[in-house]
């Protein structure tokens, strides 16, 4: 692997890790969700320090060049992650919808009860 490419990769992965940890410190991201990014950035740091790992693994699997292996692997990983995010998003939307509907139904009941009470007091 080219030296400059390794340096860029190293800087980017260290920055990613720093950014993730920084956001955890600020309590901007839940630990559960940050795990993926920390593991990913650690993996990238290790790979940029020891590119032999990539060559080794890709050789075992039968790829000619490590890049041919790394690219599809990372893309696959991110696709899975993205789909999982869509699942979470759907779940959150459902929860928010449920809460909004529930609150409107409760508000209607409270309003009705208040009106009844007011009418009772008038009598």
């Amino acid at each position: 692997m080219l030296g400059s490419y390794r340096i860029v990769l190293l800087i980017v992965s260290v920055l990613t890790m720093w950014f993730t940890l920084h956001k955890i410190r600020q309590s901007k991201i839940k630990i559960e969700y940050s795990l993926f990014w920390i593991i990913l950035s650690v993996m990238l740091v290790i790979l940029s320090l020891f590119p032999q790992i990539a060559s080794f693994v890709s050789e075992i699997i039968g790829f000619q060049s490590p890049v041919n292996f790394i690219f599809p692997f990372i893309i696959f990983l991110l696709l899975i992650k993205l789909f999982y995010n869509s699942l979470l998003l759907s779940m959150f939307e459902k929860k928010i919808e449920g809460l909004a509907q529930e609150s409107s139904i409760l508000e209607e009941r409270v309003r009705k009860l208040e009106e009844e009470k007011r009418d009772d007091e008038k009598k």
Partner: peptide, 27 residues
């Protein structure tokens, strides 16, 4: 006008709004 009203605090779109009505119907 004292109409019967479910007042959604946020905009949910027709699906969510109609579903709120159906939840009320079920309840």
């Amino acid at each position: 006008n004292k109409y019967n009203l479910l007042d959604l605090p946020i905009n949910l779109g027709l699906t969510g709004a109609f579903q709120a009505g159906l939840k009320y119907a079920k309840r």
